[in-house]
Simulated assay, not measured.
Amino acid sequence: MSKPVIIENTVVRQDAFGRYCLNDLHRAAVAQGKATEAQRPSKFLRGEGIDAFVQSLSEAQKRASVNTIRGGLESGTWADELVAIRYAAWIEPAFEVQVYEQFRDTIKNANGMLTEQVQAGLAMLAFYKQEMRIAPSTMPGAMKKLQSSLGMPDILPAYAADTPDGCMTGSSEVTHSLTELLSLHGKPYSAISAFRRLQLLGITERKSRPSSKAPDKEKLFWSLTEKGLQFGKNLTAPDNPRQTQPHFYDLHFPRLLALMLNGAAS
């Protein structure tokens, strides 16, 4: 949320479309002795040329540039920035300058805050990807959440390819969990014993995160190492995005089994 516009200790409210409350501007001007009680927004909107200006602006933006609400907490006249500045000029030129500068400073501050938030978010995602070796397919979802939290438009693709080194298909390989693949291949390993074997081979590693139920305790989970990424990918766990859930490429699982059984790839 952007920093509120405050003029002469009067907060100029905005609605969901970013339109400013002209009644708040009027109160701020009256408090400074720059406007009379008669210079209300309703009188301004009846002025010569204002209706045509408002209509042209509404058509250009494909939405109402002025909205008047009667009754309730949001009662008043709400207008886009251009209309608000024109209203300030109608009240008094010096007030127009004051309002314009306040709008400009507020936007500048908001842009600065947004830049800091974007940088912090990207740094967090970079750390997340590096430390947890998250698969590319999970990153668009994380970026979309970052965009949404910052109120930014969604410009990212919904899909990214995950492929092992040397893959020439250009698309994601089919993967399954270790439990599913062990069952499919009928090998005498439980999932936990298989993970421990892969840990000895440097393919998986044990990581931890604070427990959501008991912050003073740790929750352990498995993650593929850099070496292990040739055999699979790290997905974010569905029950907690702060931990990984290894999935293994179906096509490369026979080679991985040979490595587990013999200590060397066949």
Rank of each mutant, 00 (worst) to 15 (best):
D80W: 01
A84T: 01
L114E: 05
N109K: 11
Y87R: 01
A135I: 07
E92M: 13
G71I: 00
Q61T: 14
V83D: 07
F127I: 09
Q119P: 01
A79Y: 00
S56N: 11
Q55F: 00
D51E: 15
K62H: 10
Q119H: 03
V83G: 03
Y100W: 11
I69R: 14
S75H: 14
W78F: 08
A89V: 13
I91N: 10
I91Q: 10
E96D: 11
G121F: 06
G49A: 13
Q130C: 02
A84S: 09
A60Q: 12
M124D: 04
A60F: 06
R86Y: 03
A60V: 00
N109Q: 15
S137F: 05
F127H: 11
E101G: 04
E59G: 05
E59P: 03
I107P: 03
F103E: 02
L82A: 07
M124Y: 12
G49E: 06
Q55N: 13
M139D: 02
E92L: 12
Y100A: 05
D80Y: 07
M143V: 07
G141W: 02
E59M: 06
L114A: 13
A64P: 14
D105L: 15
V54M: 01
Y128E: 11
G76W: 14
N109D: 09
Q130D: 05
V118H: 00
Q119R: 01
A52F: 15
L125V: 08
I134G: 03
K108A: 12
Q102K: 12
G76Y: 07
A88T: 04
M124W: 12
W90Q: 08
N67T: 06
L125K: 09
Q102A: 13
R86C: 08
F95C: 00
Q119D: 07
D105K: 12
Q61P: 09
D51I: 12
L57W: 07
I85N: 15
I69M: 10
A123H: 12
A52R: 10
T106S: 14
K129A: 02
P136H: 00
A60Y: 01
A94M: 12
V66Q: 10
K62A: 13
P140Y: 01
M132S: 02
E81T: 15
P93I: 00
D105V: 14
G71M: 07
F103K: 02
R133N: 05
L146R: 08
I85K: 13
M124S: 00
W78D: 09
G141P: 01
